[in-house]
Design a protein around this nucleic acid. Structure first.
Lengths: 345, 345
DNA sequence: TTGTAAGCGTTATCAG
DNA sequence: CTGATAACGCTTACAA
C-alpha cells in the first residue's frame, strides 16, 4: 500500500456545476444570503453541497476577507513540557471551549523566555490568526517587551497577566489577595517565620503571590527576612523538596512555608516528613492552585484555588469581542480566587 | 482610546517596490532560491524585507501551494476540561515540540464522543491543516467510525491508539504489557482478589490496561470476577473514591486495587484510609501514568510510567513524514512503559 | 537574471 | 434574483 495524497476537495465551482448555477449563487447559499435567490435554486445548491460533501476552504476565504477565525494562544515557557503545568492546561481548555462556541479554532504556539524572540508572534505575522492570547513567563522587562511588540502588530490581543498598562486588555486571577489571605491565615495561627518558595524563572503569578505575602507581613508588622524567600528550579516537586531541605538546614528555620504552587508544596512536605518533621504540627505548608491532587495529599493541602478554566474562557471572550469589534475599550478583568483551608496549614 | 484594526502588513509587492525589483525576485529570495539572482539584488531585497518587517502571508501561500504547515490535533473527549488530563497535556507538548522544530504550527480541536460528529475533522475539511493526530475516547465502534472517516479524507493522519488496522499509522504506549506486569506483581505478592477501576467513557488506554489485567489473571489461573471491575465517572479522584467505597462494601472485598489512572488511585486511597484501612497493609493500590504527584502521595504510589511527551513526539514525527512523503508505508509504533514500584502496592 | 501573467478558492461589485 | 469579473497575496510557468 502506498500513501495517497490528500484528495483535493470539491470547491465552489464543482458545486455550482453540479447544481447548474454560478459560483456566486453557491457562495450566497454558504453565507446564508438566502433571500437573494429562489427557494428552488437554494434547494438544488444545498443538495449539491451535501452530495459533494462540500466545506468552504478557509484559506481562500480568509485570504479574501482577511480573517482566519483562529485564535492564537502564545506561550512563553522555559519548559518544553509547556503544558505540563495543569494551570496552563486549564487555561487552554477554557480558551478552546469558548473558541468552539464562537466558531473559532485555536492555534497553540510557544517560545522560550531566555531571549526575545519575535517568532512568538509568527501566527499573527503570517496571518494565521485574528488575535492572540499571551501567557508569558520570564523577567518583567522581557514580558514588557513582548507586550509592546504585540501592541505594535495589532490591538487584537489579551494578556493573561495583571499587567499595569491601561491600554491593553488583561484577564488575571487575584493572586495578590489570595496570597495575602493565605499569609494572614498563617500569621493568625501564630507563625512569625514564614518562608516563600518560587521558581527560578519569574512568572507573573509568582510575583503577585510574593507581593501579597510581603504585604501581609508588612500589615502585621513582621519584618521580611530575605533568607526565607527562595526562587529556584521549576514547577516541580523535586524543586520544592530541595528548597525545603535548605530552609530546614538554617539555624533559625521557618515554622511555615508558603509554596508558590501545589507541586512545590508537595515536594516540600515530602522532604520535611522524611526529615522527621510533622506537617502541620512542626511546620505548616500551604500551596497555590488547588490542583486535582491537593485534596488527597497527606495531610490534605491548604491552598488557593485559581479558576484556570474560567480565566481561559474570559480571556477568549474578551479577545473575540475585540476581534469582532463588539468591545473597543481595553478592559482589565481580575477574577477572584478562593482560599481552600485543609489540614496542612 | 479606540480599537485599531490589525494594520495591514506589507506584502511581496511592497517589498518589491521598495527594493526596486519585481515580486518574483522577492519571492525567490524568500524561498531561498538565491542562486537565481545577483548578490547585490539579493542584498537589496533582504534589506527591504527587514525594513518593512515583511513576513509571508501563509494563507496566500497555502492557497497557492496547497499546504498549511499546520498539524491538527483532534481530540474526542467527554470533558470540556479536555486538557485537564495531564497525559493529554504531555502528548500535546510533545507534538508542539516536534512541530516547532519542523516549521509546523499546531491547531487543537475537540469534539464530544457522545455521537458521531463530522465536525471533528473541520480543520482538515476546511484546509486548515496538512494532517491530523487523533486522540480518541468513547466506544470502540465509535472510534472506528472516526478512523474510517479520517481515512476517507486523507492518508495524512496518525492515531494515538494501538488500533488493529494494518493500513493506518499508529503510535501508542504498551499499556497491555504495563498492566500485565503490574497485575503480576500483585499476584506475586499473594493477592487473589484484585479489583480494576476504569471510567464510564471507554478509552483505548483503559481497554488495554483492562485486557492486560485479565490476561495476567488468566496466566495465573485466577478466575476473573466481574464484580471486581468497575467503570464509572471520569478521570478524577472523587470517582476513584466512590468506586473504592463500593468495593469495600462487598461481602468479599478485594485485597488489591488496580486503578486505571493515578487520579482514580489517589481517590481510592483516600476513601480506604478514611474507612480505617491501611495501604498497603490491608489493601494494595496501584495506579497508571506516574503523574507528577504520584511520588508524593501517602503512601507513594506504585504505578506505570507512560511516556506521554514521547508519544506526542513520535506521532508528530510520523505525521510529518507522511505529509512530506518521506514515509509512505503505514507504521505502527508501540512505546515501552515502565513499572514504577513504590510503597502503595 | 529579471519581469509578466495566470491561477489557487473565495467574496464583492456591478451589470443583466 | 442571477452571473460574469476582479481582487485578496502568493508561486509557478514562461517570456524577455
Amino acid at each position: 500500500m502506498t500513501a495517497r495524497p490528500p484528495s483535493r476537495r470539491p470547491g465552489l465551482k464543482a458545486v455550482a456545476q453540479l447544481a447548474g448555477v454560478s459560483v456566486q449563487t453557491v457562495s450566497n447559499v454558504v453565507n446564508a444570503k438566502v433571500h437573494e435567490m429562489s427557494p428552488e435554486t437554494r434547494r438544488r445548491v444545498e443538495e449539491a453541497m451535501r452530495e459533494l460533501n462540500y466545506t468552504p476552504n478557509s484559506q481562500a476565504r480568509g485570504l479574501r476577507v482577511q480573517k482566519t477565525s483562529t485564535l492564537a494562544l502564545l506561550l512563553l515557557d522555559p519548559d518544553p513540557l509547556y503544558l505540563a503545568d495543569p494551570m496552563t492546561a486549564l487555561i487552554i481548555s477554557g480558551v478552546g471551549a469558548v473558541a468552539r462556541e464562537h466558531g473559532y479554532m485555536v492555534l497553540v504556539h510557544a517560545a522560550h523566555p531566555n531571549q526575545f524572540d519575535r517568532g512568538l508572534f509568527l501566527p499573527i505575522l503570517q496571518n494565521r490568526a485574528d488575535g492572540s492570547l499571551l501567557l508569558l513567563s520570564g523577567e518583567k522587562s522581557m514580558r514588557r517587551a513582548y507586550v509592546e511588540e504585540a501592541a505594535k502588530l495589532t490591538d487584537h490581543f489579551v494578556i493573561l497577566e495583571d499587567i499595569d498598562a491601561p491600554s491593553v486588555c488583561t484577564v488575571s486571577a487575584d493572586n495578590h489577595t489570595g496570597s495575602f489571605e493565605l499569609t494572614t491565615r498563617l500569621l493568625d495561627a501564630g507563625h512569625r517565620r514564614i518562608a516563600f518558595l518560587g521558581t527560578a524563572v519569574s512568572w507573573p503569578m509568582i510575583e503577585q503571590r510574593f507581593a501579597g505575602y510581603r504585604d501581609a507581613l508588612d500589615a502585621a508588622g513582621i519584618a521580611f527576612d530575605p533568607a526565607l524567600a527562595r526562587f529556584e528550579g521549576e514547577w516541580n516537586a523535586a524543586t520544592g523538596a530541595s528548597m525545603a531541605t535548605q530552609l530546614y538546614g538554617m539555624k533559625e528555620p521557618p515554622t511555615a512555608i508558603l509554596a508558590g504552587n501545589d507541586l512545590l508544596a508537595i515536594g516540600a512536605i515530602k522532604a520535611l516528613k522524611s526529615s522527621g518533621l510533622r506537617v502541620p504540627e512542626d511546620v505548616a505548608v500551604a500551596g497555590f492552585n488547588d490542583f486535582a491532587f491537593a485534596e488527597h495529599t497527606d495531610p490534605p493541602l491548604t491552598t488557593v484555588r485559581v479558576p484556570g478554566f474560567e480565566l481561559g474562557r474570559r480571556a477568549a471572550l474578551r479577545l473575540i469581542a475585540r476581534i469582532e469589534g463588539t468591545e473597543t475599550e481595553p478592559v482589565s478583568e481580575r477574577l477572584p480566587v478562593e482560599l481552600i483551608a485543609r489540614a496542612s496549614a
